[in-house]
């Protein structure tokens, strides 16, 4: 094992925000815990130890513990990360501060409501295939160019973790901003040959300041996206596309920022 021995036994200091907004007596406060580091320790392992040893009602969310499901986004020393993929050995001074992700409603401690946020976003961008064709599923499927399928897959890898949203200044200012995640979703359906929507259709959905024109290209999203999605490139591409579509179409005035 490459990651055993050398770190064994180091004392880690965790500072964790605790707050239960549903309890009128509760006030946000930081609580400190000390924990001995174990080989290959992730924040998933550490937080469960803290729950078992010190704080049985500490709230946090993990499901897959493998960086696949997008449940465990949190602020680690100020940066939004998937906690289950974050190794304690990457913090040389052994000091780790944990806060819930901003922009999402806090449930308690490190647990926030991302699911409903994502469902709302999905409905806003109509995150499903739009087609008039009736398919007979006993028949051979429609062929798709392998490269196009790959390209769709690349953008379909988003796990709705919300990290792009919590690293986005626009999202903080505009609670209804669809976020990089929403704009990426539009780009995903745009490349999918099964979807018959036109650029005008997408304009209807996100052609405003809570959509494609809200992005201030601060790049926080792409820097932190755990799936390394090409968010800036896709957002810029969609913005150009939607801007020109509306220019040539209705001649509406559009504001293009950034």
């Amino acid at each position: 094992m490459p990651d055993t021995a050398q770190n064994k036994g180091r004392m880690l200091t965790f500072e964790i925000l605790q707050y239960n907004p549903s309890d009128p007596e509760s006030k946000p406060h930081m609580v400190t815990y000390h924990l001995e580091e174990t080989p290959g320790m992730t924040l998933f392992v550490a937080l469960n130890m803290i729950r078992e040893k010190f704080e049985p009602d500490l709230a946090f969310d993990f499901v897959c513990r493998a960086g696949i499901c997008g449940s465990c986004g949190m602020m680690v020393n100020g940066k939004p990360l998937l906690a289950c993929r974050t190794l304690t050995r990457d913090y040389p001074d052994g000091h780790i501060q944990l806060m819930p992700m901003p922009s999402f409603k806090l449930i308690k401690d490190l647990s926030v409501v991302t699911g409903q946020w994502m469902d709302k976003m999905s409905k806003r961008v109509e995150s499903w295939i739009h087609t008039k064709e009736e398919h007979d599923i006993t028949r051979i499927e429609e062929p798709v160019e392998p490269e196009v399928a790959d390209e769709t897959f690349e953008l379909d890898r988003c796990i709705e973790c919300g990290i792009c949203v919590s690293s986005c200044a626009t999202a903080l200012m505009r609670p209804d901003f669809v976020g990089a995640v929403g704009l990426n979703r539009i780009a995903r359906f745009d490349v999918d040959p099964h979807d018959e929507r036109t650029t005008e259709d997408y304009y209807e959905l996100v052609g405003d300041d809570n959509g494609i024109f809200g992005c201030m290209t601060l790049l926080g999203c792409e820097d932190h996206c755990p799936k390394n999605l090409p968010l800036q490139e896709k957002i810029a591409y969609m913005r150009r596309k939607l801007a020109t579509a509306k220019d040539t179409g209705g001649g509406l005035e559009i504001r293009v920022e950034g």
């Binding site: 499903w128 295939i129 087609t131 398919h135 599923i137 028949r139 051979i140 499927e141 429609e142 062929p143 798709v144 160019e145 392998p146 399928a149 790959d150 769709t152 897959f153 379909d156 359906f189 999918d192 099964h194 979807d195």
Partner: peptide
């Protein structure tokens, strides 16, 4: 095949 129509980007 139904899933393909629902947009699952199966490797081709």
């Amino acid at each position: 095949r139904e899933l393909a129509n629902w947009g699952v980007p199966w490797t081709r």
